[in-house]
Design a binder for these strands. Structure first.
Length: 137
DNA sequence: GCCAACGTTGGC
DNA sequence: GCCAACGTTGGC
C-alpha cells in the first residue's frame, strides 16, 4: 500500500466537488513525472487531496479506485489518468505553512518541487500528515 | 500581479 | 542534440 499527494486548484476542481461527486477521473495531467507517479498507483492506495494556489492546504483523503488508463481529454494520446474516490475530509486541514514548519516534512516534493502535481508520500510522512490533520483512516 | 522554477517547442 | 524562446504552475 502506497501513499500519494494530488493537487488541484479549487477553482478548477475543489474538494467540495470531490465530496459531491464522490468519484472523479484525475484527468488533465500533462507532465511526465506526474503521469509516471500515477502509473505507479494501485487500487487501494490512498492520497492526500491538496488545494493549490488558493487555500494551500491538504483538505481531504481519497483512495485510488481505477489504475492508470488513457486520458480521453489528451488529444496527443500521451497521458493517462486514474480514478479516485473521496474517503473523508481532513478534520483539521494541513496548511503548506505547517508542512514547511515540520522538519520531518521538508523533503516533500510539495516543498522542494512546488510545480509537481502528483507525488509519492513516504509512510512516516503520511503518518505525520494524518496526525497534523487530526484524522485517522 | 509578480516572478522563480521548470517543462516544452522548434529552429538550427 | 543544443539551446533560446516561450508557456505554465503555483507560492508569495
Amino acid at each position: 500500500m502506497a501513499f500519494w499527494l494530488i493537487k488541484s486548484e479549487p477553482s478548477a476542481y475543489s474538494w467540495d466537488e470531490m465530496l459531491q461527486e464522490c468519484r472523479a477521473s484525475w484527468d488533465g495531467v500533462r507532465n511526465y513525472q506526474a503521469a509516471n507517479n500515477m502509473k505507479a498507483m494501485k487500487c487501494g492506495d490512498h492520497a492526500c487531496f491538496y488545494h493549490s494556489n488558493e487555500g494551500r492546504e491538504i483538505v481531504g483523503i481519497v483512495i485510488v479506485v481505477k489504475e492508470y488508463y488513457p486520458d480521453p481529454t489528451d488529444a496527443s494520446c500521451r497521458f493517462g489518468m486514474v480514478d479516485v474516490q473521496a474517503v473523508k475530509p481532513m478534520k483539521n486541514p494541513v496548511s503548506l505553512n505547517a508542512i514547511k514548519a515540520n522538519p520531518v516534512l521538508v523533503d516533500l516534493p510539495l516543498v522542494r518541487q512546488s510545480r509537481l502535481s502528483v507525488m509519492p508520500i513516504r509512510d512516516h510522512e503520511w503518518k505525520i500528515l494524518l496526525e497534523m490533520g487530526k484524522t485517522t483512516l
